[in-house]
Amino acid sequence: MSTATKLRATLADRLTEDGTLADPRWSSAARAVPRELFTGSYFLPVPGSVPTHYRPVREGEPGWLEGVYSDETLITQLDGRTRPDDVTEGTVPGNPSSSSTLPSLVLRMWHQLGAEAGHRVLEIGTGTGYSTALGAHRLGDADLTSIEYDTVVGRAAAASLEAAGFAPRLIIGDGLRGDPDGGPYDRLIATCSVRYIPLPWLHQVKPGGRILVTLSGWSYANALALLEVTGPGEATGRFLPGCTSFMIARPHDRPPRPALALLPGEERPSRIDPAKLQSWTGGWVAQLAAPSAERLGAGAEQILWDVSTGSQARTAPNPHGGWTVVQRGPVRLWDRVERAVQQWQDAGEPHQDQFGITVSATGQRVWLGAEDGPGWDLPV
């Protein structure tokens, strides 16, 4: 038995023991698909570096294969262009733009999607192709279509899938437009996050079909939602337990902005602890309330900057107790965030699995508790 086969079996055993691989058919896929064919060289973050720098780990060097079979996300591209083999020495800064997601998350999402043999599945975001290969092993090549936005990434994934013996239908294009020539689909799974559910998906997945996607935004808070399509352009669903995050789809990412300049504004006491925005769900609730804002800072010192209007809000501890907020611009960002966080606190600060989403012809709304509960419109 080769070293790679042993490491693959060890990883599958560990994921079986912790409950990730509850279905033996997905366990078989995890044991069969060689992740090393899909990752090649990869980047690891340099601990403590600010801004974050990345060290390339090249294919075949000591520790490379052990890293491939760790349950970790492996960065394979920075800034939409830099790949590990492009770095000849040292480390480089950058923003991750493509990766091989940690195997436990990929397999958990395939479980959550509920795809069975005979279902036609559309995957948004081929990436390295590892998730695609798992799906093809379980469902068969003929019933799986995968779309990749980045041409270079997509071509590399196609070569890796061929080397691994898989031949699903692959498309290079904007996954947010879906696959108008290939529907209808029974299932859609996205390995990128979006600000709202793209309307083409809601017409390409048949009524009764499912969409599994992570919702994110310009503050980069994330929540995984499982929706059932109830009719053309309509769906309803719930958010799932756990903490799932993905890189945001490039067409949904925030536009370029100038360097931040903190300007004077109106000052008042804050009615909430700004540190609540540091929690997984608290930050997401704040993002729902101010979807065009980027969030910076940490702890009691939060900064919100509205990308579209230039509005700002910043908080700081008050030396006499409590916190102070300064706001300026046409959008009172902290007012909106306060109201949303207070509604969440009044409900007992539940995790995202107590939230749901309804999509209709009139818009897309995330709600807390029940459809008639507190809610926020997504920026469609």
Rank of each mutant, 00 (worst) to 15 (best):
residue 33 V to I: 10
residue 201 W to S: 09
residue 315 T to W: 10
residue 134 L to Y: 07
residue 185 Y to K: 03
residue 229 V to H: 11
residue 212 L to K: 12
residue 306 D to P: 06
residue 81 R to Q: 08
residue 335 D to P: 01
residue 220 Y to G: 00
residue 42 Y to R: 04
residue 93 P to E: 00
residue 179 D to T: 03
residue 90 G to K: 08
residue 178 G to S: 13
residue 135 G to F: 09
residue 361 A to W: 01
residue 331 V to T: 06
residue 250 R to H: 09
residue 374 P to Y: 05
residue 324 T to Y: 13
residue 1 M to I: 04
residue 123 E to N: 11
residue 349 E to D: 02
residue 290 A to P: 01
residue 378 L to P: 01
residue 67 G to A: 01
residue 124 I to V: 15
residue 245 S to D: 15
residue 181 D to V: 03
residue 162 E to N: 05
residue 337 V to T: 04
residue 178 G to N: 05
residue 122 L to T: 11
residue 97 S to P: 12
residue 226 L to W: 10
residue 69 Y to V: 01
residue 216 S to H: 03
residue 350 P to E: 02
residue 96 P to N: 15
residue 138 R to M: 14
residue 265 G to D: 02
residue 30 A to T: 11
residue 149 Y to L: 15
residue 253 D to S: 15
residue 280 W to L: 14
residue 378 L to I: 07
residue 131 S to P: 12
residue 186 D to I: 14
residue 224 L to D: 12
residue 90 G to A: 07
residue 59 E to H: 14
residue 298 A to M: 13
residue 242 G to E: 06
residue 15 L to H: 12
residue 123 E to M: 11
residue 233 G to Y: 10
residue 156 A to W: 07
residue 75 I to K: 07
residue 294 E to D: 08
residue 161 L to D: 04
residue 131 S to W: 06
residue 180 P to R: 01
residue 241 P to F: 10
residue 345 Q to I: 02
residue 245 S to A: 12
residue 50 V to Y: 13
residue 212 L to D: 05
residue 317 P to N: 13
residue 26 W to M: 03
residue 335 D to N: 00
residue 24 P to G: 03
residue 242 G to D: 03
residue 218 W to H: 08
residue 288 L to K: 06
residue 275 A to N: 05
residue 92 V to C: 08
residue 299 G to R: 09
residue 1 M to K: 05
residue 313 A to P: 02
residue 166 F to G: 02
residue 266 E to Q: 02
residue 204 Q to W: 04
residue 288 L to D: 08
residue 54 Y to V: 08
residue 64 W to R: 03
residue 264 P to T: 12
residue 39 T to R: 00
residue 90 G to Y: 10
residue 320 H to G: 11
residue 106 V to I: 12
residue 344 W to M: 06
residue 282 G to C: 07
residue 41 S to K: 14
residue 71 D to T: 10
residue 105 L to T: 15
residue 259 A to M: 14
residue 171 I to G: 08
residue 130 Y to E: 06
residue 240 L to M: 14
